[in-house]
Design a protein around this nucleic acid. Sequence first.
DNA 1: ATCTTTATTGTCATAAAGACAATAATAAGT
DNA 2: ACTTATTATTGTCTTTATGACAATAAAGAT
Lengths: 299, 299
Amino acid sequence: MDQFRALRYFSKVAETGSFTKAAGVFGVPPSSLSRRVADLENSLGATLLKRSTREVKLTEVGQRYYTQVLDILNQLEQSNEAVRSYQAKPMGHLHISSMVGFGERILLPLLDEFSQLYPEIVLDVSLSDELSALSRDDVDLAIRGGYAPNERVLAIKLMGNQFIPVAAPSYLAEMGKPVHAIELKQHKGLYFRTPNGPTPWLSYINAQWQDVSAPQVAVSNNGNWLGDMAAKGKGILMVPRWATAHHLESGKLVELVLEPQVQINQNNDMAVYLLYQKQRYLVPKVKAAVDFLVARVKC
Amino acid sequence: MDQFRALRYFSKVAETGSFTKAAGVFGVPPSSLSRRVADLENSLGATLLKRSTREVKLTEVGQRYYTQVLDILNQLEQSNEAVRSYQAKPMGHLHISSMVGFGERILLPLLDEFSQLYPEIVLDVSLSDELSALSRDDVDLAIRGGYAPNERVLAIKLMGNQFIPVAAPSYLAEMGKPVHAIELKQHKGLYFRTPNGPTPWLSYINAQWQDVSAPQVAVSNNGNWLGDMAAKGKGILMVPRWATAHHLESGKLVELVLEPQVQINQNNDMAVYLLYQKQRYLVPKVKAAVDFLVARVKC
DNA sequence: ATCTTTATTGTCATAAAGACAATAATAAGT
DNA sequence: ACTTATTATTGTCTTTATGACAATAAAGAT
């Protein structure tokens, strides 16, 4: 039995819920699929699909098997793709998904140069703070603030992602410069909205984590706007150092040194990670992009 | 091309470093492996193996590919094994749908023991008197009163479902004990509401079926409540023997012996059936439950 | 109850893989 | 340097597996 074919047939039938539709995809008569799937079920000694004339549904085992088979077929396809493109030069679509802030400040400015280096690569960049599934999908490279989701994905730490409190000199002149973390509660706060809600300000005071968030003046998922608000003296903002470097240099914002430290997360080992499937490093376009980004960004 | 076969051949050749040895493992001539591996290389457009007469070595891509392929083949084998294991021992979700009365009185008390017997089965029990279509719903087992519905479903008669008239001694003391069925019309009736409406009382009098229903005092689809009403002397109730056994034993209700017999249906071969779908490959969890229930419940 | 859609089965045609012998290539032994 | 032995590959035929197409059966929808 051609197991590979049987698995593709089976998973397509499961996906479409119909032998006829799936047969259409492969350009063969439904009877072929029926026979191959029956062979497969026979070899496993289990019923994978509940058939009726109107719909085809997965059984319980079928559902489990389907999930795994889909994953296996995907991996195989990726491995094949990697080998096929092995000796070709970097080309084709490269889908990069990045956090918005990092994308705007760091990634996009670099990509011009990358495009010139590899003119045959068509860039497709998505900026979003939602964490997209790297695994089964169409994303070649992802840049995220968290850790690797599974062992098939490789994570390279690009840079630290420590959030620091900043404010405009004018704001500090008016409201006073806070020294102890607890004083923040009397200030005005500008907040990032992550997919999990606005990020609180935390500080480790008297052997305990305390929320020292100031009253909200503005909340947004747009870092630029929050930065501008802060520069206008509207409040204090917790922001990654790399995202506000230009404001710090120009003097529009200054870093607040607080005692004890204020963070937005109990573990302060936040970092920006470059994620990709390790089996895809063989694909020239992926390798080119990974190498390029690591060379340019990594501290 | 049977890609999995090609992959198995390829990886065995890579592992043994020889077409001849690998061929021995599969019990086919080396020429077959040579052809399949060549096909594979052809389809990938890359050379995976460096051949010489003395040894076969992996190329650089070949090495990468080999590692990934090995992983994929392992996963597939595991998935297949998982299915076989599922077919070998009772496990997974078991969805049982039962009539309310039977479920409460008989089924649920038994299921604790069943759970202990088969800890890997997760029970999902729905109690309802609607007759859910066994085929289209995701019900593994159904318990219903009535007759065996159709071909594709296997039905096992668990117990009789004959309805008998019962009343409280206090009620009989007050209202008199009916002897002939026709007298019931002068009594008070408690009625089940089935999905088809309240069940009438029927009796075969003078070679004719007659409705001998008493005026309705209460109608409900809740057997417990009707039983309690009857025990309080509110009226006469037609109820399955198994559902009122406890009241009969405690003497709170007594069975009425009427001439001629009173039934709720013209055919008196009502029974409680255990229904499950006939499958090509027997699912252990279903078999376990069927066997268990038959052993415990069947008279 | 009838119709329509859909999966399955039967039968034949076609394509793919295996078997076996022959050949070519290369490293080892002399 | 020459021979030998081992091993992969190629040619040809046979066997097996898959596809094609028509016919049948079953289940939901009208």
